[in-house]
Amino acid sequence: MNNFMFGRYIPGNSWVHRLDPRAKLLLCFIYIGVVFFANNFWTYLLLTVVLLGSIILAAVPARIFIRGLRPLFWLLLFTVVIQIFFGAGGHVYWQWGVFSITHDGLVSAGLILMRFVLIILISTLLTFTTQPLAIADGIESLLNPLRKVHFPVATLALMLSLSLRFVPTLMDEATKIMNAQRSRGVDFGSGGLRQQIKTIVPILIPLFVNAFQRAVDISIAMEARGYRDGENRTKYRQLKWRSADTISLVGFVIMAGLVIALRQLT
């Protein structure tokens, strides 16, 4: 579990770390949206440069990014292979039944791979530089307009932050239960798939039972501390929008405009 880098927060105090989570979420959305408009070498070059620039500003070592990509390697490979074999059009290099390798197939496989990598890297950059809690705050703040249609934004945000808060607690508990089962002779991670699934069940059941008990306890504790409903509460934590946030947002909007302009080049 500890080798799993995707979605992890890397503590730091870089320029990107200090950006407002709302700004970072917006930047991420803009970037991902623009990736789908990219269609030629120049647009991808621009997107790559912006991404590399952001990564440098975030001061997160490159090897951590590569480690973050590793679990997704098979997914990437699978997508590329499908694109290569099933993409049609242009010059045909090789054919066998429904499988064929064509010029257009190769090109679209390359583009898909590029898009995939860009999207994964920018979202990894977001999670590497933003605490989960800050992301939850950012989402709450961005969803705020939905209050007008009586969408329970604050309740949703509290649910999000409570679940985040209990992730390590439940992880600890799972480890404890696994150790308890190990001490009784259960061998995790060996045997066939069937056998492995069988060893998971005695972990999940106590974990679920305890999680429900915790949920009951925490709701009582919240009520005892005066929690009535999510919407009418004051907020202790506040987000601060600074000029750096505006600057980076303007930068990304300019990038989006450039990508759309460069589309016409082919």
């Binding site: 809690l133 607690t169 915790r214 306890d217 504790a221 501390r225």
Partner: peptide, 14 residues
């Protein structure tokens, strides 16, 4: 009120 289980009454993220 302070309850028994330290984990099950800690609501905040920090």
């Amino acid at each position: 009120m302070v309850f028994q289980n330290p984990d099950n009454q800690f609501v905040g993220a920090t």
